[in-house]
Amino acid sequence: MGIKNRGVIKLGAFADLVLFDANAVIDQATVENVMRLSGGNSSSL
């Protein structure tokens, strides 16, 4: 398709996948507060 930096896992390539620790993510939403964000996730790896 001619899209550059796709199909590889390397520095500078687009994020075609996301890795996370499912045991570390904590669902904090409730019926009363459905918009409350999850905890335990971090964008700084």
Rank of each mutant, 00 (worst) to 15 (best):
1 M>F: 10
1 M>Y: 05
1 M>V: 10
1 M>K: 02
1 M>P: 13
1 M>S: 03
2 G>F: 07
3 I>Q: 01
3 I>W: 02
3 I>G: 04
3 I>T: 03
4 K>V: 08
5 N>E: 06
5 N>F: 05
6 R>W: 03
6 R>L: 14
6 R>K: 15
6 R>G: 10
7 G>C: 00
7 G>S: 03
7 G>K: 00
7 G>V: 02
7 G>A: 01
7 G>T: 03
8 V>E: 05
8 V>C: 04
8 V>L: 08
8 V>N: 07
9 I>N: 04
10 K>E: 02
10 K>H: 02
11 L>A: 11
11 L>D: 05
11 L>K: 10
12 G>I: 04
12 G>F: 07
12 G>D: 01
12 G>W: 03
13 A>C: 07
13 A>Y: 10
14 F>P: 07
14 F>V: 13
14 F>H: 06
14 F>N: 04
15 A>D: 08
15 A>C: 09
15 A>V: 05
15 A>S: 08
15 A>L: 12
15 A>I: 02
15 A>M: 12
16 D>K: 01
16 D>Y: 11
16 D>R: 03
16 D>T: 00
16 D>V: 00
17 L>W: 14
18 V>I: 15
18 V>M: 06
18 V>G: 02
19 L>A: 11
19 L>W: 10
20 F>P: 02
20 F>Y: 12
20 F>I: 12
20 F>Q: 04
21 D>N: 14
21 D>T: 03
21 D>C: 09
22 A>V: 02
22 A>R: 01
22 A>H: 02
22 A>E: 09
23 N>F: 08
23 N>R: 11
23 N>C: 08
24 A>L: 06
24 A>M: 06
24 A>E: 14
24 A>T: 11
24 A>K: 03
24 A>I: 00
25 V>D: 13
25 V>A: 14
25 V>G: 15
25 V>F: 14
26 I>N: 06
26 I>D: 04
27 D>Y: 11
27 D>Q: 14
28 Q>K: 15
28 Q>Y: 07
28 Q>V: 07
28 Q>F: 05
29 A>V: 02
29 A>L: 05
30 T>L: 05
31 V>D: 09
32 E>L: 07
32 E>K: 05
33 N>I: 00
33 N>D: 10
34 V>G: 04
34 V>I: 05
34 V>F: 05
34 V>L: 11
34 V>E: 07
34 V>P: 06
35 M>A: 10
35 M>F: 04
35 M>L: 02
36 R>E: 09
36 R>M: 09
36 R>F: 11
36 R>Q: 12
37 L>S: 14
37 L>I: 12
37 L>V: 10
38 S>K: 13
38 S>N: 09
39 G>C: 08
39 G>F: 06
39 G>Y: 08
39 G>M: 06
39 G>T: 05
39 G>P: 01
40 G>L: 01
40 G>E: 02
40 G>P: 02
40 G>K: 00
40 G>V: 00
41 N>S: 15
41 N>Y: 15
41 N>K: 13
41 N>F: 14
42 S>R: 13
42 S>P: 11
42 S>C: 15
43 S>P: 14
43 S>L: 15
43 S>M: 10
43 S>A: 15
44 S>I: 14
44 S>W: 07
44 S>M: 14
45 L>E: 13
45 L>Q: 10
45 L>S: 13
45 L>T: 06
